[in-house]
Design a protein around this nucleic acid. Structure first.
Lengths: 205, 205
DNA sequence: TCAGACATGTAAGTCGTTACATGATTCA
DNA sequence: TGAATCATGTAACGACTTACATGTCTGA
């Protein structure tokens, strides 16, 4: 049963390969270092998915044993693959199904003491604040790059820019900045909610 | 291999049963109608999980064939179950791993035209606005109930209040209101982000 | 009488995580 | 020389979705 579901991982990996040819290891690193505020992947999915993409002829696999390097399989997207990515990008995106354990715990918190409820929220607050601090730091780096056109070395590692063309580079930088802004805004909203709740709990029963 | 992971569904169901005894059908309905802004469950998980909970003696199963009713299995939490719920509630909650397909599409959107990028965001905006409208309506109902202590009939269906004690009832109402506020704030943040992005895209290249 | 809600359950598959297994290269 | 990183992969679970199968009761 269950036709094709969504295959998010498949299109995510294919999409990343549309930026430039990469190995499974590269993909994992890019996601971890650069996209962790909105995406994640793990090896258990990546390698089998790459195999599947090769079978579907959406990517090609090429062993890279150049210059006495380690064994390394580099995957490059095909024309067919590029078309598939574009199709997917323009398809309607259904909203992510939410599952927020903290909310659930709070909702069921009628049996807890006021102190315990407050602790629940405060732990969430600490978590979100830490995330926000991270985002803010990346934001600073990027803002300089975008607004002042500064060249920041570490950015290439994080951003994995596809093009050397400075115009494309600036564009890609700006898009990345926008995804960061999403993380910042929603995290700020959660923090504001924490303050609202703590105030409400302090006044209430 | 993989020890116990998180068993979110297990504790979610057990937690809901700590409010009051329910059938699998009741649980599904409560989640769909009342908690959909932060939780979801489906039958394929609910019924097997209920069986597992019985085996672990965290709940008891009781056939309810009273008054010529339909066949109906009602599950009630045990003392052991209540302890398990409390433990889980007070354990640290790890942040939900994010996976936002829209962000990914945007990030990979360097190959799209400006018009296409804008369409991507606008579709997201419409989605989020619809969600916000829903939340706002529930908020109105609840605000009246919380602030003015009004009795609103439909609330009992939605909220599934455990206690007839008016003080507990008000407390539960308030907590539910707070979870709604979380949905509202984060949705507003996403909408504000949409406006920011659309402005940025309009000015940029 | 018949549509729609009530009610329970299973089968099959997809998706995702974690742990394990293996080994090469680099660099302090 | 040995720790860190590079690099690929599999096995086993656990989690979640979808579709199907089946039947009852209520009320317009």
């Amino acid at each position: 049963m269950g036709m094709a579901a969504r295959q998010k991982t498949k299109f995510a990996i294919l999409g990343l390969l549309s930026l430039k040819p990469m190995s499974g290891y590269d993909i994992k690193k890019l996601v971890d270092v650069g996209l962790s505020h909105f995406w994640n992947e793990n090896y258990g999915q990546i390698y089998p998915t790459l195999d599947a993409l090769v079978k579907e002829q959406l990517v090609t696999k090429k062993g890279d044993q150049s210059r006495g390097k380690r064994r390394r399989n580099v995957y490059a997207i095909t024309r067919k693959g590029r078309l598939a990515v574009q199709n997917w990008q323009l398809e309607p995106t259904e909203p992510p199904i939410v599952r927020n354990e903290l909310q659930l715990k709070l909702f069921l918190g009628g049996n807890l003491t006021k102190r315990q409820r407050i602790q629940l929220i405060e732990a969430y607050q600490v978590q979100q604040q830490a995330a926000l601090d991270d985002y803010r730091q990346s934001e600073q780096v990027l803002r300089n790059a975008v607004e002042k056109g500064e060249y920041i070395e570490e950015l290439d590692e994080i951003l994995d820019l596809t093009s050397s063309n400075p115009k494309d580079r600036a564009k890609q930088c700006n898009i990345f900045y926008l995804t960061l802004r999403h993380g910042i805004r929603t995290t700020e909203a959660r923090l504001a909610w924490c303050r609202e709740v703590l105030e409400n709990l302090a006044n209430g029963p």
